[in-house]
């Protein structure tokens, strides 16, 4: 038998593969869910800008504007969408299929400091950008300390 030096990297790579397989199986089970929830989850970044607004950017490449639905209700922002398959392309014509099709949905709880009446959204280059301005009173205020 050949003695081999123990390779941490290879060991880790094997572990990653195994873990992906485990989670992949769970994930597949989740997809069969018929509760109406989204089958896939768009990647989302959320950040705050200097002008005191929160910006949420969701990756929805290949969706049509009319297939994206955005609602704000009871401080919950929900993004729903559907990515439709190409028309007239049968499964047998695919050499490679990595993109996910079907419905997606994600919800976020908004902080009370967001003004829901001024929420704006635009879709460009496959990214939905939602701008959530903060209320005036939520902006930091300097409080003077009176001296007696």
């Amino acid at each position: 038998m050949m003695t081999q030096q123990w390779d941490v990297m290879r060991e880790l790579a094997t572990m990653q593969d195994r873990m992906n397989r485990i989670w992949g199986n769970v994930y597949d089970r989740g997809r069969e869910d018929v509760s109406g929830a989204g089958a896939w989850l768009p990647a989302v970044d959320i950040y705050e800008t200097g002008d005191k607004e929160i910006v949420l950017k969701a990756e929805l490449p290949g969706l049509k504007r009319e297939d994206i639905d955005l609602t704000v209700e009871n401080n919950t922002l929900t993004i729903r969408g559907v990515r439709r398959r190409e028309d007239g392309v049968a499964d047998g014509q695919y050499h490679r299929s990595e993109r996910v099709y079907g419905a997606c949905s994600r919800s976020f709880t908004l902080p009370n400091t967001v003004d829901p009446s001024r929420v704006k959204a635009e879709y460009r280059d496959g990214v939905l950008a939602v701008r959530l301005p903060l209320r005036e009173e939520a902006k930091p205020r300097q409080i003077a300390v009176d001296v007696d």
Partner: peptide, 25 residues
């Protein structure tokens, strides 16, 4: 607003795959 039953498997899957991959990368 539609209520969606919480599915721990889905939650875990979406969280863990991304996080693990991030960690490894």
């Amino acid at each position: 607003m539609t209520l969606v039953r919480w599915n721990p498997a889905r939650e875990l899957a979406s969280m863990e795959i991304d996080r693990l991959n991030q960690m490894f990368s």
